[in-house]
Nucleic acid binder design. Structure first.
Length: 275
DNA sequence: AGTGCGACCCGAACGC
DNA sequence: TGCGTTCGGGTCGCAC
């Protein structure tokens, strides 16, 4: 559920709070979150200073000098900063003790999240990172790039919007919002999309993610605040979770269907199947 | 190669 | 009331 706007909010908040702190210990009540050798992971990060925290798409990079923890929140991952003496919550799986009496704790009800320790100067060589496309609000996301990326695909547009190798960082919520703003039906095939429609996708992606980032992302369903940060973009959502309600643009009833196994919300009048 | 789908998880929502 | 069942969602890996 955390998509790029939410992940940026988490990275920025963490950055303000814990850059400069030293990790003095780590405990891993559920260590399957960590990819690769858990022992190496633990040994390598203890006694390191947190030098930078950033994100790329949905990945968070917690940099400790020449090593970086790449962290993906998947569905419900969250970070909390709590006093070391505070009792562990049962969903807190990775506990890093910092040098000021607090912990950085990774909390994940679904246990889907991942952490990978890599060399900082090799982040962009990692397979998970190298294949990612362009962030939605980056100027190099052009209509030509989108057109080139989708014009020979038979996949529905909803699935293509979720394809991280094309647009890096959209998830189920913003994919629906982008298609609504671009007036494209979620089931239309990539190969049927014209260049001027790619322009609308590009503009919608840029506008929506820029605004959502400014508002701190969306706080909906199970993805509530972490680090005491609550986003407000959920009040701006035009179609997502609004099935059965009236479209703000035309008054038609918003429908919910499944596309590629995903709940998909759209307006049947504003987003026509064919044209 | 491109596409489809189950697996990974577990709490909430639902059905009986 | 209380039980069992279904659902969902990001990504990977396997099957076609």
């Amino acid at each position: 559920m955390p998509e790029i706007a939410e992940v940026r909010t988490v990275a920025r908040t963490l950055s303000k709070r814990i850059v400069g702190r030293k990790i003095i210990g780590i405990e891993t009540p559920y260590d399957k979150i960590i990819e690769g050798s858990v022992l190496d992971f633990k040994k390598s990060i203890v006694d390191k200073y947190i030098t930078n925290i950033d994100n790329y798409g949905k990945w968070i990079f917690i940099t400790l000098g020449d090593l970086t923890i790449m962290s993906h929140l998947r569905m419900e991952g969250k970070y909390y900063i709590k006093p070391t003496k505070e009792e562990w919550n049962k969903h807190e799986h990775i506990i890093m003790h910092l040098d000021d009496g607090t912990d950085l704790r990774y909390h994940d009800v679904r246990k889907f999240g991942k952490m990978v320790l890599v060399k900082t100067d090799e982040i962009y060589k990692q397979k998970e990172i190298a294949k990612l496309g362009i962030e939605p609000d980056n100027d190099s996301l052009t209509k030509e790039y989108i057109y080139y990326s989708i014009h020979d695909s038979k996949l529905p547009m909803k699935s293509l919007m979720l394809e991280q190798s094309i647009i890096n960082g959209l998830g189920n919520i913003y994919a629906d919002e982008v298609l609504f703003a671009a007036k494209i039906h979620p089931l239309r095939m990539g190969s049927n999309i014209k260049l001027d429609e790619c322009e609308r996708v590009k503009e919608a992606a840029k506008d929506i993610i820029t605004k959502a980032t400014k508002m701190g992302g969306s706080t909906i369903r199970s993805y509530t605040s972490s680090l005491g940060v609550t986003g407000h973009y959920q009040d701006e959502l035009k179609v997502h979770t609004r099935n059965g309600k009236e479209c703000f643009e035309c008054g038609s009833i918003i429908e919910k269907i499944r596309v590629g196994g995903r709940g998909t919300y759209f307006c049947p009048k504003c987003q026509k199947e064919k044209k």
